[in-house]
Design a protein around this nucleic acid. Structure first.
Length: 279
DNA sequence: CTATTTGTTTATCC
DNA sequence: AGGATAAACAAATA
């Protein structure tokens, strides 16, 4: 279930292993999570190295190990990190990587295997990491950047554009719905149709939702503010937290979008534009 | 057996 | 050429 906040939550799960040496490595080299990688490198390089630190960027996690090793983790749809004490835990059903330390094991598991593990060796962080776009809460995430991106994808539904990690790293399906709901924008509105004020509102809400998600996500998604759309969007019969109107779900841009009719009015009704004020 | 899933990459069609 | 869209990936769950 990994979007911005939960990726960060998963990253911290391995914190008890920082400073610890890797004694042994178990992995299932054939799984899809190692696609494009030489899994043998994990077995040859990691034993003997010490976990030094870790960092998140959007949905990417990078673990730094001694010996100039960099372990990249993307959780995909169902990836999860675990820290097992005592080494007594049995191998999980969908466990793909286990780093044994003296007092614990650091585990990556992923039933659907959409996630990805990669290992690089070098003095500096790997190229794929350094070329990631600016995070939405960084100074580099400017309104101009958002406006340009919307213009470049002017005909695509705003919901689909918001899911593009090239501009909005960390934003996933529920965050995109949350952001659009707060803005009052229908998910199928063409991205190029947002005016200046609306673009700014989008930029602001992207940052606000991201900020709160990062701060509030503790043990589970349940820690998000009670008034957020999140808590109503998956259950059938959910209603808008602000208007009480029944929520609608529809496939937009290949993903299920959830919105509040009335509050988020659909595009393509030119007649309604004469009275349209911004939210 | 069918349809669903908090993600990304690839192929295909404009 | 570049953007938009659908399918594919793998497995659980309803």
């Amino acid at each position: 279930m990994p979007e911005l906040g939960e990726v960060e939550y998963n990253r911290r799960i391995w914190d008890p292993g920082v400073g610890g040496r890797v004694d042994r490595v178990d992995l299932h080299a054939a799984t899809r999570c190692f696609r494009g990688e030489d899994a043998d490198c994990f077995l040859r390089w990691l034993p003997g190295s010490v976990l030094r630190s870790s960092e998140c960027r959007g949905k990417q996690i990078l673990f730094r190990f001694s010996g100039d090793l960099w372990l990249g983790v993307h959780l995909g749809m169902t990836g999860a990190l675990r820290c097992l004490r005592d080494g007594e835990a049995p191998p999980g059903r969908h466990e793909h990587l286990r780093l044994h330390q003296k007092e614990r094991s650091l585990v990556y598991s992923d039933p659907r295997q959409f996630g990805r593990l990669r290992l690089d060796r070098g003095k500096n962080a790997p190229g794929w990491w350094k070329s990631l776009p600016p995070e939405v809460l960084s100074a580099g995430f400017t309104l101009a950047r958002v406006r340009d991106f919307l213009a470049r994808h002017a005909r695509a539904p705003i919901k689909a554009v918001l899911l593009d990690q090239e501009c909005f790293p960390g934003i996933g399906n529920w965050m995109a719905d949350e952001i659009l709901w707060r803005c009052g924008f229908h998910p199928s509105r063409p991205a190029g149709k947002l005016d200046e004020a609306e673009s700014r509102a989008l930029w602001r809400e992207i940052r606000q939702v991201s900020r709160v998600a990062l701060r509030r996500i503790g043990k589970s998604w349940g820690d998000l503010p009670r008034e957020w759309l999140f808590h109503s969007r998956w259950s059938d019969g959910g209603s808008c937290p602000r208007t009480g109107v029944a929520l609608v779900r529809e496939r937009i841009g290949g993903r299920t979008a959830c919105w509040s009719p009335g509050r988020q009015t659909p595009p393509r009704s030119p007649a309604s534009r004469r009275k349209a004020g911004s939210s």
